[in-house]
Structure formats: C-alpha cells, structure tokens
Design a protein around this nucleic acid. Structure first.
Length: 473
RNA sequence: GGUCCCGUCGUCCAGUGGCCGAGGACGCCGGCCUUUCAAGCCGGAAACGCCGGUUCGAAUCCGGUCGGGACUACCA
C-alpha cells in the first residue's frame, strides 16, 4: 500500500512554525516510504481565508524544501485540492448520512444547546453529554452526526499508542451548518477518504477531534486512516509559542537571514532525533531514518538560541561564493543603499572572515558597516576600554606613520608594518592593535584587523586614524 | 468542571529491567589558542516530579499522587 499523507493548512494566517514542523514530519514520512505528500487547502472558513495567506503558506513550504507531489499548484488525480471547490460533495455526504440514519437535522437555537452543556457540567459530566438527537425529529437546520452510544472509540496512534474515548463524552457534532456549508470535521474527513489518505500526522490539539473523524469515516462506510498526533511546540518558558518568543511565522525566518537547511534541521530535532549523538544532519539523512513511530510524545520548546547556533553551523559550511550571494541583500540593508562594484570587491576580500563570524545573515551587514561610509560614532564601551590609556596618542601617531610607508596595500604588508610597532613602543600587542582597531572600525570588536584595514583602503584608513587622534585631543 | 494527552539536565534529543555512578547537543561557567570577536580544542556545573508496588535488580513495568498541556463552537 502506498503511503499517502497530507498537509492541509487553512489560509487564515501565515504559516506557523508549528504547522511547518507538522508539514515537515509528513514530508519526511512520505519520502521515507516512497509515498505521496499532498497539499490541500482547508478553506472552509470563507470569511477568514485569503489568497494572500495561501500564497504565503505555499511560498514558505517551498522555501523549506517541502515539495508536494499532489495538490494545489501541482494538480493530481483528485480534481481540486481546495475545499471551497468541493462544497457540493460535502453536502452530498451529509445528506447521505441523514438518509442512512447516521446523522440528523437539528434546528435548536444556540441558547438551548448552551443550556444542555451547562446542565451537563453542573452534573459533573462532559459538556457534550446531552447534545443528542432532538425529540421530535427535525426536518431542517444543521446536520449532526449521531454518536453510536454502544461502544468506545479506540485507535492505535503511531506516537501515543492506544487511545480511547467513551461515546458519552462525545457530542453529536455539527457536520453541515444550517447555511449548507461544511464544518472542518466534515470537509477534512471527506477529503481524507476521497483522496485515499493512509496516515494523518497532525498536532496533538486535534486529538480530541479524532474519535469524531473516525466515527464519521466509518459512517461513510470506510476504514479510518492511521493517526499520529504530534507533540505541540512551545516557547522556552513553557508557554504557548507566541510573538514574544521571537517569530512564529516561518516567513519571518526566511526574511531574517536563516537558511532553509538550518530551519529544516532544527525543526526536525523538535520531537524527533536522527540518533543519540547527531544534531546536525541533512534532508537525506533524515529521510533515511525517519519514522512517525519514533516521534516523541512530549511537547517541545522552540529555542531561538539553538536555532541561531545551528544556522551559524550552516552559514560556515557555505561555499564562499554562495555566502557572498546570500549576504548581499543583508549588507545593503545594513548600509542603507546599493553598493558599487568597487565596494563589492572590497567586501569580497574579507567575506570569508565575516562568514566565520556570522550566525544570522543580517550580522554580516553589521560587521562590514565600517567599510562603507563614515563611522557614525565610536562604540562607547570600546572607546572607554581601549582609547583612554596614556600611550594611545603615541600609538596612533606611530601607526599612521608606519602605514603611510606601506607600499602594497595588502593585508600581509600591512601586518608586517604594524607588527613592528609593539616592540618599538615597548607595549603589548593588544595595546597597539586595539586602539588602531577602534580608530579604523569604530569598535573593539571587528573582523581581523589587517584584513579589515586592507579592505578599507589606504586613504580611508589614514583619515580615520587621524580623526581618532584628533578626538583624543 | 469534564474528556484526553504528557512528565529524564534551564532547553532539545538518547535511554525501552542489569552495559546508567544516566549519554549527545544548545545555553552557562572555567581554561587553551589569539591583536578583538567569532570559530576550534580541553574541562566543569546541571536531570530520571513525588509516594508506593512488582522484581535479585527500575529512569525503564504497575498503581496512586502532584504538576503541565490540549480540547470542551453551526473556528480550523
């Protein structure tokens, strides 16, 4: 049997990292089993669904590298993969179920139903307890599925093992609203049946809905798919993942200078692991080893710091050319304008050194800001730490003299010239190099000094030393 | 309130009765390297929620307890 899994996002918001992780696990499972990964759009909520969100979601999924074999944008043997195109089909199923007696009409007002729930809670029962077939039977209104009260719903979840629900705790839920539109439960279940989905891997938040989906599937005369309820993602404080934990939209990571391979790798480590020792692994390794049955039952905390570390690992592994290409937009954003060809050449000379020091691409821009445009102001801490010593004026004067005599303006020649200074001045190396660094880059933290000076150019370097010397008075 | 799920370092993952005096990773602390910062290397602190039971032996099995979470709509 071919494994057929699906991701069915609702275009009512951007792609959440939790949803992306669920998509990732589905994708891995499909690839590992040489099955089909399907992308369906669950847009039964016509009010909140938008074209913009749908495009954002598809774009984010593609960016992560989760190509789908069937579904929106790529087509497939099942017609439309957008639920809003299939309302007739859902209505047909709902009416068939009424005909067979598995479902019934209910036109009771919301207040009456609310009263039934309140009564159940007052008696210490599940709120769903009294939501049953009205007497006398109705001929119109919403359609509810009648929960068979004679047997519990039991299923073997791939990650949670055996789970069971008692029928009295399940309400006769609405499958078709009184306006004729399907609910999520109906549309999703009908699609899973029609599209021959074999495994449903989704967030644990849907676990309480699963018995409903199983009963609906059986009422349709089919056997339910195998379920796998994935642990939810939280923030590091154990609270629900929200804006205050950093970005929750996958597209924010894309624009924030994260590499898709790193995000893929990190997401895969949340609730799953390649083995006991390996943290960094690629798609192929994950596909080779992945199994839904190995997914952890525990909720996972999304840790932005670990993601940043991992992104740095991937940034450092990039080829020099690729790094420059990826860093380019971030450098221009930091500088605030497009750079000239000559400026790019300067950037490229120290790009490898910047690459080693970059976790997130935007940091690359900050590191080379000193190369393009005047220093706005010296970093206060750096200035206080290294520019206030008595010998600094003399150091800067001597350094400038030494640099003025440099012939070939290359890192190695510059290094030779500056290396001679500590001995000549009788002070330690850092006492010479740090003041020069602050004068030239504006900060005591920068890429390696000689290469930075080489990339900056003779005129700018000398001018900056002169300026810093003037600031000292 | 009810139903369901979960409980190993601060965080992620490993561990499925003896190999665990609990392993790897991020982070943290210390050291080395070094002109700074990174990177790298070395070392360190850091966990089986609690109580019972089963067993020669439990992080691993069972029960209870406490704690956390999800759900509880004519939203998805």
């Amino acid at each position: 049997m071919t494994v057929r899994v699906r991701m069915a996002p609702s275009p009512t918001g951007t792609l959440h990292v939790g949803t992306a992780r669920a998509a990732l696990f589905n994708w891995l499972y499909a690839r590992h089993n040489h099955g089909v990964f399907m992308l369906r759009i669950d847009d039964t909520d016509r009010e909140r669904s938008t074209q913009e969100f749908e495009e954002e979601i598809l774009g984010s999924l593609r960016w992560l590298g989760l190509e789908w074999d069937e579904g929106v944008g790529v087509g497939g043997p099942h017609g439309s993969y957008r639920q809003s195109d299939r309302f007739d089909r859902y209505r047909e199923v709902a009416h068939d179920l009424v005909r067979t007696g598995a479902a019934y009409y209910d036109d009771r007002p919301a207040e009456d139903l609310g009263a039934l729930r309140t009564q159940a809670v007052a008696e210490g029962l599940h709120p769903a307890h009294f939501i049953r077939r009205p007497d006398p039977p109705r001929a119109e209104g919403a359609i509810r599925l009648a929960i068979p009260q004679d047997t519990p719903v039991v299923f073997d979840d791939l990650v949670r093992d055996r789970v069971s629900f008692e029928p009295e705790d399940l309400d006769d839920f609405v499958i078709l609203r009184s306006d004729g539109t399907p609910t999520y439960h109906l549309a999703s279940t009908v699609d899973d049946v029609d599209y021959e989905i074999t495994h449903v891997a989704r967030g644990e938040d849907l676990l309480p809905s699963t018995p409903k989906h199983i009963l609906l599937t059986r009422a349709m005369g089919h056997t339910e798919p195998i379920y796998a309820h994935l642990p939810l993602l939280f923030g590091t404080d154990g609270r629900k993942l929200s804006k205050r934990h950093g970005a929750t939209a996958l597209s924010d990571y894309r624009s924030g200078g994260y590499l898709p391979e790193a995000v893929f790798n990190y997401l895969a480590t949340l609730g799953w692991g390649l083995d006991a020792e390996t943290t960094i692994f690629d798609r192929e390794q994950a596909v080779a080893k992945f199994d839904l049955a190995d997914v952890s039952k525990n909720p996972a905390a999304f840790d932005p710091e670990k993601l940043a570390w991992m992104n740095g690992e991937y940034v450092r592994a990039l080829g020099a050319e690729r790094f420059i290409e990826l860093a380019r937009p971030h450098v221009e954003t930091a500088v605030g304008r497009t750079l000239t060809a000559e400026e790019w050449e300067r950037f490229e000379t120290i790009a490898p050194l910047v690459q080693e020091r970059t976790h997130l691409l935007p940091e690359a821009g900050d590191q080379v800001l000193f190369l393009f445009g005047e220093i706005e102001g010296y970093d206060p801490d750096s200035w206080d730490k290294v520019m206030t010593r008595d010998e600094v004026p003399k150091v800067l004067d001597t350094a400038r003299e030494a640099l003025e005599t440099v012939g070939d303006w290359t890192a190695s020649v510059i290094e030779t010239a500056l290396r001679a200074l500590p001995d000549r001045l009788g002070v330690g190396a850092s006492r010479v190099f740090q003041p020069v660094r602050v004068a030239v880059t504006g900060s005591s933290v920068s890429p390696p000094l000689f290469e930075s000076i080489a990339a900056l150019g003779r005129d700018a370097t000398l001018a900056r030393i002169t300026r810093a010397r003037r600031e000292l008075g």
